[in-house]
Simulated scan of single mutants.
Amino acid sequence: MTRTSRIDPPSRTTAVRAAAPEDAVRADARRLVIRGQLRRPLALTVADLRERWRQHRAAVVFDCAKNGPRHHTFHGPLLRDVIDTAEPTFDARRRKDRSRYLLTVTGGDGHHTVLSWAEIDPDFGDAPILLATAMDGRGLDGTGSQLVVPSDRCGARYISAISGIWVGTCAPPERP
């Protein structure tokens, strides 16, 4: 299986079908809380993610263990841009300080994954990881944002219905 992904340049407008009116009630329940070692914790809806940050497009193919290859096009802001707004408490001038930070992303079903800040930091991996606001042209307002990791071959880190993101450091391992 050949994995392909492409992140297109950012745009302010995307061709995304609006959520149906009945999704308005459910959309409010789909709030994503960003907390941890931050100066400005955030609580956001999919609409907030769409309106407050530049939208990027990612055309991806990833393997699903149960259903084989999946082809999707996602739109959404970069995870890094959203977390930057929450102002992590690290010293941004110090690379080693930034490299100690982790992000735990949790979905509505309890599935979660861990990313390192270094993966998304421009001085390290600079991965264009998205908090998707739309998938295949349909808004995710009713179901919640989805984590999109275009460089992943498998879809295990594509967390659906994101309910929370924790940002911070973990304790260093004890010395033997």
Rank of each mutant, 00 (worst) to 15 (best):
S5K: 00
S5E: 13
I7Y: 01
T13M: 06
A15V: 15
E22I: 08
A24K: 10
A27M: 11
A27T: 03
L32R: 00
I34T: 10
G36M: 07
G36S: 01
R39Q: 09
R40L: 12
P41C: 06
P41R: 15
L42Q: 12
T45I: 09
V46C: 10
V46F: 14
D48L: 06
R50V: 01
R50D: 04
Q55F: 03
V61F: 05
D63M: 11
A65W: 05
N67W: 15
N67A: 14
G68H: 03
G68K: 11
P69A: 14
H71P: 08
T73H: 02
T73N: 00
H75W: 15
L78I: 00
L78E: 08
L79S: 02
D84M: 08
T85W: 11
R95G: 13
R100T: 13
R100Q: 13
R100G: 04
L102A: 00
T104E: 01
T104Q: 14
G108M: 08
G110R: 10
H112N: 12
V114Y: 01
V114G: 13
V114H: 07
A118T: 12
D123M: 04
G125I: 08
D126A: 15
A127V: 03
A132V: 01
A134L: 04
D136P: 03
R138P: 07
T143A: 06
D152N: 14
A156N: 06
I159A: 02
S163G: 06
S163I: 00
G164M: 00
I165V: 12
V167R: 04
G168T: 07
A171K: 02
E174D: 14
P176R: 15
